[in-house]
Design a protein around this nucleic acid. Structure first.
Length: 278
DNA sequence: AGGCAGGCTTTTA
DNA sequence: TAAAAGCCTGCC
């Protein structure tokens, strides 16, 4: 089925922005995307046109929300004043097409615990190993198999050696603690989605192995708190280098997290560009 | 070969 | 309470 998306939407930009770790590239501008108990093939086939493997009904019920198509990212992007903030303006122009997906809170919790001290390929690898170790084996619309992201109880069912085999290293104990925490019902993701970003982050940091940065990522990518602003080493460098007199968070509320994504992706791409040149 | 990669917890001053 | 040390692992 062909669908049309007029707003900012770029599959490569979204997956390169480091918010999702389970998309599989199946071709030029084409991906296979597992989400909860579903799996979608999507391919860019022309101007604003995308070929998707699901029915119209499934797209409306599941994927419209997953891709956050109800939010106007062009409007968010155009709030940046080129004169007042040329750096962010350029970053957003360059990285236009990034959106903040509405992913599963529990999956994001585990994914970002795993992310600490790892680069993106290593994060992807660990998550794939974990899913293969205890996720449910499923079959997509083409009959090709994949693993659903495991439930907390499935993670708890692994013995320590099996967990360690997912290349989790010292994060093993964090992953296990988080699975216990969720399994015991100590966190209510739905409730935290309804509050503000700061409250959600505060609650998330109660979990062993979750600090401010990881909690901010979970709030932004797993609870859709668009004002959450993860500060990793790159963002700290950006704030130091580009905004020595301070960053105007209040001007950019309630979308600070979206702008963070633009500048983060922009900075990283500049860096890799420099590396490939030299 | 040592440092670093999208940090966190624990220990130490 | 702020700064360091230690932690798994893979990669250059």
């Amino acid at each position: 089925m062909i669908i049309y998306i007029e707003d900012d939407f770029n599959l490569d930009k979204i997956t390169d922005s480091g918010q999702c770790f389970r998309w599989e590239k199946t071709g030029e501008a084409a991906y296979r995307i597992p989400f909860r108990d579903k799996c979608l093939y999507i391919e860019a086939v022309g101007d604003s046109a995308y070929d998707v493997s699901c029915t119209q009904q499934e797209f409306q019920n599941v994927w419209y929300d997953y891709f956050d198509l109800g939010t106007d990212y062009r409007m968010i992007r155009e709030r940046i004043d080129e004169q007042k903030d040329p750096f962010l303006y350029q970053a957003a122009e360059q990285e236009k097409g990034i959106r903040i997906l509405r992913q599963d809170s529990w999956e994001m919790l585990i994914s970002f615990i795993i992310s600490q001290n790892k680069n993106i390929p290593a994060i992807r690898r660990s998550i794939a190993l974990l899913a293969a170790a205890c996720g449910e084996a499923c079959s997509d619309s083409k009959g090709i198999s994949y693993y659903a992201f495991p439930r907390p109880e499935a993670v708890l069912g692994l013995d320590p050696d099996q967990l360690r085999a997912c290349s989790l290293g010292y994060r093993c104990k964090y992953v296990r603690a988080a699975a216990e925490y969720v399994s015991e019902g100590k966190i209510n993701f739905e409730e935290l989605q309804k509050t503000d970003a700061d409250r959600a982050i505060e609650a998330l940091t109660e979990i062993y192995g979750v600090g401010i940065k990881v909690a901010s990522c979970i709030a932004l990518f797993g609870m859709h708190h668009l004002n959450a602003f993860p500060r990793d080493v790159w963002v700290k460098r950006i704030l130091e280098n580009e905004y020595p007199n301070g960053y105007p968070f209040s001007d950019y509320a309630p979308y600070n997290g979206v702008y963070q994504q633009y500048m983060f992706a922009f900075y990283r791409n500049v860096k890799t560009l420099r590396e490939t040149k030299s």
